[in-house]
Amino acid sequence: MIRFADVSKRYPGGKEALHAVSFEIADGAMVFLTGHSGAGKTTLLKLITLLERPSRGQVVVNNRNLARFPWRRVPLLRREIGCVFQDHRLLADRTVFDNVALPLVVSGVPERELARRVRAALDKVGLLSKEHSYPLSLSGGEQQRVGIARAVVNRPALLLADEPTGNLDPALSDEVMDLFLAFHQYGTTVLIATHDLRHIRRLRKPVLVLKAGRLEKQIGFDDA
């Protein structure tokens, strides 16, 4: 699903965020990406969604080589990827329903189909009763679950999460991780960047360890 071949990313100004990173994540796998802050986790995720382009090397996502991928088709690529963020990135002036519906609205899904799929996604994260609420009236864990509903409403083949439990207490954060695990069990490929080693120990999934922009270790990939 994701293949990095000798990928480096140098930002303008000279800072090298990633150096010669190579790995491969199979279809349907669930993988953790870990490392200290500034190790390059966010940069790596941005290369997958083409928010950034590599300075060197090749990134292949869902059988598409992203080198020289035309800008015009970037939106179509992003519709195949669901993204979850530490700070949720929900729109405060729209209801939970409208937030979750956004990926469907931009791809022009008809009204009835849209409502059905939004409710299905909200049901999966257990927030169907909150569809008319505004994000700020929800708790942090609920907001994150809305963010997850938005990420999966398009039924993407690939789900990316950047520190999804960073702002949550342990109980809520386990709940959120279990949601990701559930989507993985439905067949979605999941890549989660986190520095919380507790989840990694608890869920026993393969781990990529970044250190100062280099891939230091790959754990558990042989049997994944």
Binding site: R78, L91, P103
Partner: peptide, 16 residues
């Protein structure tokens, strides 16, 4: 800006 970034991230085209 926030809204634009999010729409872009979930696959909204520049035209949208």
């Amino acid at each position: 800006r926030e809204e634009i970034e999010i729409i872009s991230l979930v696959g909204g085209t520049p035209a949208f």
